[in-house]
Design a protein around this nucleic acid. Structure first.
Lengths: 292, 292
DNA sequence: ATTCGCAATACTTTTTCGGTATATAGGGAG
DNA sequence: CTCCCTATATACCGAAAAAGTATTGCGAAT
């Protein structure tokens, strides 16, 4: 029993005529007769009562017709679903977002969602180490990260935007209260709350280099693992910290503000990253190539 | 997309290997590769990730596999259902039963039901004219009737059993209270409640003939259309009546009893009848041929 | 680096499927 | 009642598709 036999059969059942069905399907009449006969032989049932005024369904034919039509429709739907999945218009994308990339990630994700509303999106906000672990485990498909000067191993990266590194502080810890921007020399001896640098995608290393070019080493007050914690530390007066410019707006207020650092040329890049090896599903592929 | 392609695909998905699937399906390996490739081309999706350690499903493949297995199972089930319908092990039979054939009909139907429990049975008890109308309209498929000496037109008949015609009466209307059986001459002048004879399958005609052979005409008290009414009339003392022997037991009691009529040679045949022209579904065919 | 295993490709053979021509049956008109 | 018309079934042929055999190509493991 093949799909084609079912289609022929249903056409004949609807037209109540082999000839009419043949015309509708753009084939000759004998093949239809033959396939119907084969189907009947295989099932061991007469599906039609042959009369000179056309073909009428038997009980068995009636049953086959009702279910057969549904069956053919199911097949179409099945193909369509898989096709959609392959082309990326449906499926799922699991996204990991680093806190400081939120200003890039959210508009991107939103635009993608508008374009492909049938793709399920899962979003996880976490620290870079966690995100990487989950990417490698396959629990996440793509990450919004910060790229440093180094190339990350085993990752495809796509730059979404670049930011100036800005100093954030409270009024009490402002190294240059009288100026609109802070000369880098003023950072000498100022306690800083830095994000840990054992991940490849931070900006600490380059920051340290910049300070050393100015002839001093920064005073590290403490290190933390995520941006929100660093913000809390700054707010509590532990010291100052650095953030990419674009994220500053979302965390400013409540006693915290940002200034540029004159002489700090280092910039931070927000990137979309995904695994170099390993398989990308259609929807993930679409996501990585998506242009908002 | 064909069923065969789906089957090949599912086998490969399960074995995670083209070669293993080929062995399982008793075909060579290249056809499997080719059909998979064709399927992928048609759907525009990679269904497998090819590695030297076998084939692994992609997301699209995963989806197709889950639904495809179900789909194939559905096809099997579809075939089976139609086959069953054709062979008569499932389906429906609409049965009309004449009151006086109940002792034959019920055991027959019960035995059929035991043999083919998946066949739906609809049973209607009615007067012969009604039953015939419904048979001709196609509302009923088979009838349990009484056959007279005449052949019924347009009906196949199958004799299920024969009965002596017995006289039923109350003590007050017994024409021969002192005898165990009634000589036919005693019926002279005895009022009778007869079933109407304008149907072909009654026994009135032959009964009248028998009386006339004995030299008298029966005194007709009244005529009715169905056995239960005749019974009520007898019970109420309108007169005596005739019934096939086998039904007498089910209606005896409550003042009514039966006696043989000596000299009445006419017998009544319980028959299973179905339309001569017109199409018989598998289950109806089975029913008509059924031997309890 | 070599070899082994497995999937893909090239090519041949067989089967199946569709097309043309024709036979056959049933119904309606004269 | 006969003829004809319509519609389905059958016969046969050519084309397309599928399976089989042989071979290549690619990765991984030793």
């Amino acid at each position: 029993m093949t799909i084609r036999q079912l289609e022929y059969f249903c056409a004949v059942a609807e037209e109540k005529s082999v000839s009419a069905a043949a015309r509708r399907l753009y084939v000759a009449q004998p093949p239809i007769s033959r396939q119907i006969a084969l189907l009947e032989k295989e099932l061991g049932v007469a599906l039609f009562r042959r009369g000179s005024k056309g073909m009428a369904l038997t009980d068995a034919g009636q049953s086959l017709y009702q279910q057969g039509r549904q069956y053919i429709a199911d097949m179409e739907q099945l193909s369509e679903r898989v096709r959609a999945l392959g082309s990326g218009v449906s499926g799922a994308v699991r996204i990991g977002v680093l806190y400081s990339t939120v200003p890039y990630a959210l508009p991107f994700i939103r635009a993608f969602q508008r374009e492909y509303p049938r793709v399920e999106l899962f979003i996880r906000l976490d620290a870079p180490q966690e995100l990487m672990t989950q990417l490698n485990r396959g629990d996440l498909n793509v990450l919004f990260l910060r790229a440093g000067t180094k190339e990350a191993a085993g990752l495809h990266e796509r730059i979404l935007g670049e930011d100036e590194l800005r100093l954030i502080m409270t009024a009490a810890t402002d190294p240059a209260p009288e100026l609109g921007s802070v000369p880098i020399e003023r950072l000498r001896g100022v306690p800083m709350c830095l994000l840990r640098s054992d991940d490849l995608w931070g900006y600490n290393e380059s920051l340290l280099r910049e300070c050393q070019r100015s002839g001093f080493s920064p005073a590290v007050a403490c290190q933390c693992y995520d941006t929100p914690m660093a913000m809390q530390l700054v707010r509590a007066g532990f010291g100052v910290s650095f953030l990419p410019g674009s994220i500053v707006e979302t965390v400013a207020g409540s006693g915290i503000y940002a200034k540029s650092v004159r002489g700090l040329r280092e910039r931070s890049y927000a990137v979309l990253a995904w695994s170099e090896n390993g398989y990308l599903s259609g929807s993930v592929e679409r996501f990585t190539q998506f242009e908002p």
